[in-house]
């Protein structure tokens, strides 16, 4: 019995929050956890830096990336349905043009909408004058 009583005491301590045992739930849709700056979420491509060299395409293990023509230049297009967010494309980019944002809510209703064209990925850094 003594072991069970010991256990009962410890669980009661948690019920009453005695001694640094707070409730830790985060009510997800209403509150969110703070992501670390290095979080690997949806990609973003620097419009000015990307040269469309295709090194990311070659190095992607899953064939997520295809280089497509957008406007007058070539940019990577990501099929997030196949991506495993390993970050290799970020590592190998010679221009440091790819970065990964903190966007992790990527679920969608169709497979087509999981293909992120350059239109949805490009950003351009503001250049200080």
């Amino acid at each position: 019995m003594s072991g069970i009583i010991k256990g009962l005491i410890v669980t009661m301590k948690h019920v009453l929050h005695i001694g640094n045992r707070p409730t830790v739930t985060i009510q997800y849709p209403y509150e969110r956890m703070k992501l670390s700056p290095r979080f690997r979420g949806l990609h973003a491509v620097d419009e000015n830096a990307c040269i469309g060299c295709g090194i990311c395409e070659v190095n992607c293990p899953n064939g997520t990336i295809t280089i497509v023509k957008y406007g007058t230049r070539w940019f990577p297009q990501f099929n997030i349905g196949m991506c495993m967010f390993c970050g290799l494309c970020v590592d190998v980019c010679p221009m440091n043009a790819i970065k990964m944002t903190g966007n992790y809510e990527l679920a969608d209703y169709t497979r087509e909408s999981l293909i992120y064209t350059p239109e949805r990925l490009l950003f351009s850094k503001e250049v200080k004058q």
Binding site: T11, H14, V15, R21, T23, T25
Partner: peptide, 8 residues
């Protein structure tokens, strides 16, 4: 259960 398991 939630109170014991530090949940809501």
């Amino acid at each position: 259960v939630a109170m014991v398991q530090v949940r809501y």
